[in-house]
Amino acid sequence: MAKLDLKIKKPLDGYSKVINQIKIAEYQFDNLISLAIPLKTERKCKLNFKKSLGEPMPNIEKSIINKSGILGFRIGLDLLLVCNPSHSSFVKKTVPSLKQAFYITDQTGGWCGVRVDGDRVIEMLERICPLNLSQKIFAIGDVKRTIMDHLNVIIFRETEKKFVLFSPSSSSGSFLKSIEISSRNI
C-alpha cells in the first residue's frame, strides 16, 4: 500500500499580500474550540479555566493569552473560544482538562483567520465593520463578534493597528475579497 503523506490545507492556503500598506495574511492556528458554560456552573468553570490555561477567565468581549500563546476569547455570557496557534500538548492536556467543566466543540475546520496590519488598517476596517474602532471603546485585547459585508466575523484587536478577523471558513474566500476591495478603496 502506498505511503500517504497527508498535509493540512488551510482555507486560504497561506495567503499573504500587501495592499495600500496594509499587510493581509492568513492567521494560521492548529486548533480552535468553543467552550460553553453549563447552566449555573460559572464558578466551577472559572476555576477550571484558570487551572487549565493559567490565566483567569476573561470577562465578556475580553481575551487572555497564556504563556504558551493560547488565546481565550469570551464572546458571550456563557460562550468562549480558545485558539491554539501551535502549542503541541493542547489536544492531549489542555482540552481534556477543560472538558472537566465545559461543554466543548471542536471548531478548527469551521473558522478561518486573517490578520490585517498597517497604518491605514482602521480606514480599511471602517468601510466594512459597523463597530466603533476607537481605542476607548475597542481596546487592545478586546474581542467582538459582529457582521462585515453580511458575514459573521469575530474581530480581535492585537495592537493599535493590528487585528485578527475570524470568519467562517466556508465563506473565507468572499470575506478575503471584501478585505482586499476595502484595502484598495481607502
Partner: peptide, 11 residues
C-alpha cells in the same frame, strides 16, 4: 446592556 451600542444589522 452588556456590550454597549451596537448596529441593528447584528440583530
Amino acid at each position: 446592556p452588556l456590550l454597549g451600542p451596537r448596529d441593528a444589522s447584528e440583530f
